[in-house]
């Protein structure tokens, strides 16, 4: 199969998934159980307010029509207005997304060395004390819920050694150094969680490659150990790494929800939680769909990367 067809097929599949996701989100929030308006208003509802809200949300229209106009608007970049603040959702989202992208970028920067170095050490010293020690550390970190890890880091660096602010609040006028101080703890939390997953997988991948016959062949060709590792082992262990990174991106989108909330960082994740607490239906739908779209895009990129990196597919 030609590579172009593979790529196009993969892209089409992603778009189909996104379409399905939008239907699922719409179905869960607006259609499934009972009346949206009374859910939003809760106990304070009076018949008049309910009717007004229904009118505002076009709840009297059939579901399919509402879905189409909602999704159609999204496609044109029009997310509608938030319920609570009545501001355009795009306007609310923009600074939040900027903050979260910044946070994720810093987190990824910390994550890469945090994942690669221990994995390399473990794979080359397998079944030795270093390997076992690192395994125990990763296991414990793996078992820590991210909100606990965030809290522990906070206890360490805010309370015991007070060098960082407890609340990572930034506004558009914040200085670079304010941003930096605000980002350290949340980014480190995210990086640790992602790295812990990656270390284990990378270690196993590397070991598998190191045990393969072509590595034995390379050794029996008389290549020195360093060349075997760098020229034959690493390149072949990198493709699966890409996959872990995509999985981690997927985690990141959920992880920011918790971590931003813990540190009071005004990003996309805390917006999502706030919109849920305020029952701001249009805002919820927009944020959830964006989160899913990012996840799908990350997986798509990882797959395409794997296709391009695999000589079998690239040349075939």
């Amino acid at each position: 199969m030609s590579i172009l067809r593979l790529v196009i097929g993969r892209v089409l599949l992603s778009l189909l998934t996104l379409l399905l996701v939008s239907i699922i989100i719409f179905a869960i929030i607006e259609v499934l159980p009972g009346d949206v308006a009374s859910r939003i208003l809760g106990r304070d509802a009076t018949p008049e307010t309910l009717a007004a809200l229904r009118e505002r949300l076009h709840l009297n229209d059939p579901a399919i029509q509402r879905y189409l106009s909602w999704f159609g608007g999204m496609l044109q970049g029009d997310f509608g207005n938030a319920l609570t603040s009545a501001r355009p959702i795009t306007e609310i989202l923009a600074p939040r997304i900027f903050n979260t992208v910044l946070l994720s970028a810093v987190a990824f920067g910390i994550y890469l060395p945090l994942a690669l170095i221990p994995a390399l050490i473990q794979a080359t010293h397998r079944e030795r004390p270093v390997d076992h020690g690192l395994s125990v550390v990763t296991l414990i970190l793996l078992s820590m819920p991210d909100f606990l890890l965030a809290t522990v880091l906070m206890i360490l660096f805010v309370i015991m050694i007070p060098v960082l602010p407890a609340i990572s609040l930034v506004v558009e006028t914040s200085t670079v150094s304010q941003y930096a101080r605000a980002l350290v703890l949340p980014a480190t939390t995210l990086a640790i969680v992602m790295a812990v997953y990656a270390v284990r997988m990378l270690r196993d991948n590397l070991i598998e490659v190191l045990e393969s016959e072509y590595i034995r062949m390379a050794e029996l060709k008389g290549l020195p150990r360093r060349k075997v590792l760098l020229r034959h082992a690493l390149p072949n262990a990198l493709v699966p790494t890409l996959n872990v990174t995509a999985l981690n991106l997927g985690y990141l989108i959920g992880g920011v929800v918790i971590v931003e909330k813990v540190f009071g960082f005004p990003g996309f994740g805390s917006l999502l939680v706030d919109s849920l607490q305020l029952r701001d239906v249009p805002l919820i739908e927009a944020t959830v769909l964006i989160a899913a779209a990012v996840y799908i895009a990350a997986n798509l990129l990882a797959d395409l990367g794997a296709i391009l990196l695999n000589p079998r597919l690239r040349a075939g």
Partner: peptide, 20 residues
């Protein structure tokens, strides 16, 4: 695939919100 594409915490949160 579509269900997995919604980050699991987000899926859980909207399901709870939708439950009323």
């Amino acid at each position: 695939e579509a269900l997995i594409s919604i980050p699991f915490l987000v899926l859980a949160l909207i399901a709870i919100a939708a439950a009323g």
